[in-house]
Design a protein around this nucleic acid. Structure first.
Lengths: 197, 197, 197, 197
DNA sequence: GCCTAAGCGAGACGGTACGTCTCGTCTTATC
DNA sequence: GATAAGACGAGACGTACCGTCTCGCTTAGGC
């Protein structure tokens, strides 16, 4: 077919290197001092990328933080499909609980939290945090329903709330994070309550 | 001069009036603009109480905000015991979901969230938001277990996570808050999964 | 009499110390690097006074610079009155020329220059630079006219222009500054042209 | 081979068109907003010439501005020689005063002023603003001396200072610019003070 | 009629100052 | 002795401009 319309724009190309440096610096700083002490000035200083460039790519510090940490979660908790929907969901719950129980969990909590008081916070969280795994999870659930492993009378969004809500809740309610035993117990109960009778 | 006849100490007494004015101003501001745009300067301006006094009574803006809003959730979602544990838990889930879907709920969410990045945040949250209802809820669950209405093989804390986690989850994941129908569906499923077979 | 209306306001008083530190730091920086490389950030850094305080007292860097250097000129070239108007004017011309020929002269030139492109530049210059010496100089001229030493048919402002204009001109026209001999020659001619015949 | 026969080098020739566009845009912007609000970015935007090209031809914004405006003053205040030195000098004073009182005069003042804080500022000013008229003015003065119209005991440079200093002074001291009456009065006095007795 | 070079517009980049904002502390006079 | 008033040091915010640096395109000689 004909030539590609262009592919290449005029002018100096955007530096992928800078983008990566900013995200890496932001993720490191989040791990070191948490979101509430994260500043754009320091991201710029540490990454060697100028503030102007940061503000050209992202709308502000929160945007950078979510982008930086979103990758981390997506990497740490990939969706795996083996064909057995119940087993796959259980596996995902356990891996997510383990990640949230790690020091990273506290940062996640802060990011989820800060989103509620941010102009485009909820959208950003959706896009960067939940969306990457959400569609795979939905597919998993739909397959389970089709297989006859999962009840078909519960809306898919509600299934997600039931499975992952308790894990997120632990980030905020002041109780210690779920240990492995509790996570298994939790997974057992929620998956069972959604399994076809 | 001469000694004060009563237990009155020398000097101007601490003003309970000031304390009330600060809490009222802070609560109003939270309702108007949310936690992220709350400033101590503005609380001082609106309440007519000086910043120095505020910092004498509280450790900072977060402390004031939690103190000011703490009662709201406790008042709005009291624990009711009718004797029927399952019905009481269901009722509480619905009332909590309704509250979190209201404008006040959004403020509470921001306070829960911000707590994760505050020095004494988790303790404050425990004290002001969760503790007041926690013991009553635990009692409710224990009674349900004793009655034979609830399964006895699930730790009480896990029951709490399962019941309330999905509601809190919705505050942060960018999906619209639970409407009444979804809340009922949610309550039906979670309570059923915890009911004795 | 009666009681002073107040004199003292409530609240922490303005820190005269800070004001002095800012002016001293600004004057030093002007001497070191000139006006075009003067920054408010560095004034704040060197003086130990915060930027917010600087912007509370002055409208910006230009304002600070003029205030800081205005004092210097006024101190360096005081108006002296001995009773002999012609001699006093001559003396003032010579002292002003000497000051403008020193390294300070270059800074003065930059400040005069920058004023033309500044919102309230001309007013600031009037107030801080010229006004302190202007009234004394006017008085000198008026006295000279009354004494019969100076021509009475030349408006006082024009006298000022004629006496001081040539000195200021040398700051901008790229020629070397007036040496002492040239300054004396200049003073001789201008004063003579304004002396009563 | 070796030497190119003509001045023509290989490759695309420098665009005279671009050079003109930059100067035109800069002159327009100077008229519209003055030197202090002139930016290289805007010159590039308005002229359609890239910043890289501008920095290839000139050292910076000041250089462009001086180049763009240099001709104006030379055109506006040409040196005229009728043979009567005193009349010619008077005429030149009046025309210069009128020009400095016009809107263009304010821009010139800013450029003169800004030059004191620029790396090659003084040289540029000499070249573009003063040199073109300086030699003609000197010639005028020398002729006046030879004719016996002007005193011979005053160095020529000092004559220039005396004649033009007061006019330039008015640009910077915050007083309103010289109106025609004041300019005539000024010219009368200065020329008289330099005329042979 | 290619080939090679230089000049060009576009525009992203690191750097750095701007003027504003909020925090938590402090120093007064007042009650 | 606790307040209100409010100035202060610290330091982050998001914007603006600077001068430099790639890019892909254009315009010419040289072959």
């Amino acid at each position: 077919m004909t030539t590609a319309p262009s592919g290449r724009r005029r002018g100096r190309p955007v530096s992928e290197e800078s983008r990566q440096a900013v995200l890496a610096a932001a993720a490191d700083l989040l791990d070191e001092k948490g979101y509430s002490r994260l500043t754009v000035d320091e991201i710029a200083r540490r990454s060697g990328v100028s503030k102007a460039t940061i503000y050209k790519h992202w709308t502000g510090g929160y945007d950078v933080a979510v982008a930086a940490y979103g990758l981390r979660v997506t990497d740490a908790v990939p969706t795996i499909q083996t064909g057995d929907a119940l087993a796959d969901l259980t596996s995902q719950i356990l891996r997510l609980a383990a990640f949230y129980a790690s020091p990273h969990g506290k940062v996640i909590a802060q990011l989820l939290a800060a989103g509620t008081g941010q102009p485009r916070g909820p959208e950003l969280l959706q896009e960067r945090f939940f969306a990457p795994r959400r569609s795979a999870t939905i597919e998993l659930i739909e397959r389970g329903k089709a297989d006859g492993q999962l009840r078909q009378d519960v809306p898919t969004q509600l299934v997600i709330d039931l499975l992952f809500g308790p894990i997120v809740f632990r980030l905020f309610n002041g109780e210690p994070p779920l240990d492995e035993g509790a996570a298994k117990e939790l997974a057992r109960i929620t998956v069972a309550s959604l399994a076809a009778s």
